[in-house]
Simulated assay, not measured.
Amino acid sequence: MSVSELINSINGVADGGAGVTDEERASLLLACDKLRSKLEGPLVLRLAIDMKIFDVAAAISRPDGYFTTEKLASETGADPLLINRIMRYMTAISLFQEVGPGKFKTTPLSGIYVTASPLAQGIIHMTSQMEIISALPAYFAQNGYKNPGDAYDGPFQYARQTKLHCFEWIATQPKLQHAFNVIMGISRSARDQSWFDYFPVSSKLSVKSDSDTLLVDIGGGVGHDLIRLKEKKPSLSGKLIVQDISVVIESISDLPTGIEAMKYDFFTPQPVKGAKAYYLANVLHDWPDKQALQILGNVKEAMTSDSFLLINENVLPETNVSLFSASTDFMMMGGFSAQERTENQFRTLLDEAGLELVKAWEPEDAADGEGRRLLEAVLKK
């Protein structure tokens, strides 16, 4: 059974729970508790990842299959008692198996949290965000329970005791910056359908000459989306440009021919004028309206009557938002004083920026009213 099928089955039981017997209910609760124990514990996992416990365990496992607490402590340089307490938790969630006092074996799940694993970087990123969320009650108590509206004066600055924006602060933390880059790569590349799978690229994305700029990916990280676009649509003519801040662009090691990397701060005038398309993926939800309008304003000034803007974001329904999306909205509020938006909120934001929303494109399997959308906007007439 796939994870999606499991989720559907659980939701089906939850919606029709009246027909479940007491025995079945007890079994279901036990199974859910067991599943929860496997998925929880990110803070302890973060400790184990930071201490490279998973890496060392894989390297020192004996031929007979086990390793000792003493050897693990020696190789990591950590206190043996701390190692023992962490391994106790790792065993409880089945990431290791305890075979005797101070003796452990790896399990099939142990290897997924080695340092090079995207899941390990996900834990690092997630736990760093949890530090901000945990400060929300104190922040709102001090600020009169007003919705934050400035990316430079909100919960993040309160929790980190800094005046820097979240991205600026992360740029000073190489470990967190790396984790963020990895997670952004996953979020952009792991989707079943990319935007160019349901957007009419052939009819809409075309330029007269290879020297013309076809698309500018603003805040595009290390170029994930443009690389996939180039792979999927190799016959496209025109220049493809990925723009991001210096620390991100400098981390790019290689790009396919036809894709150019450019250092750019989207709060400054857009240097590429008259491109056919400008593209913002997962950008605007990082900014409250105050700063989002500045970003859109700089795009607008670079556009011509032949240009259009594509915004690739999660779009909330007007009612009955899912728990996942509501949780993501809180993450945006905590880290960036920002928000996830409904289509009407995007329409209003674009209108204020001098742009007009002409269509919200969506994948064929899009959820009703919720999920990722590709918003197409042009200069307001």
Rank of each mutant, 00 (worst) to 15 (best):
S37G: 12
L30P: 06
T68P: 07
E70H: 10
F67E: 03
G41D: 11
I49P: 03
T69H: 05
F67G: 05
A48V: 05
L45W: 04
A48G: 05
A48I: 08
A73R: 02
D33Q: 15
R62W: 10
P63E: 09
S74T: 03
L35F: 08
L43V: 15
D55I: 02
G77W: 00
D50M: 07
K71W: 03
A57F: 01
S74K: 09
E75Q: 00
T76E: 01
T76D: 06
R36W: 13
I53H: 06
P80C: 02
G77D: 01
P80W: 05
V44T: 06
F67Y: 04
I53F: 02
I49N: 02
G41F: 04
L39N: 10
E70V: 11
S37D: 14
L45E: 09
D50C: 01
Y66D: 15
S61L: 13
M51T: 14
A31G: 09
L47A: 09
V44K: 05
D55G: 00
A48T: 05
A78N: 11
K38R: 15
A57M: 01
S74R: 09
A59H: 11
D50L: 01
D55H: 04
L43W: 13
L35E: 01
I53R: 01
D79S: 09
S61N: 10
L43P: 13
E75C: 00
E75D: 07
D33G: 15
K52Q: 03
A73D: 03
L35I: 10
R62L: 08
A58H: 12
L72G: 00
F54E: 06
C32A: 13
E75F: 01
Y66Q: 15
M51I: 14
E40P: 09
S74Y: 04
L35Y: 02
A57R: 02
F54K: 10
C32W: 11
D50I: 06
E75T: 06
K71T: 04
D50A: 06
K34L: 14
A59E: 13
L45S: 08
P42E: 13
L30N: 11
K71P: 04
S61M: 11
C32L: 10
A31S: 10
L43G: 15
R46T: 00
D64M: 03
Y66W: 15
K71Y: 04
V56I: 03
R46F: 10
A78D: 11
M51Y: 12
L47W: 04
G77T: 07
D50G: 08
I53Y: 02
M51A: 13
T68E: 12
V44I: 09
D55K: 02
R46C: 13
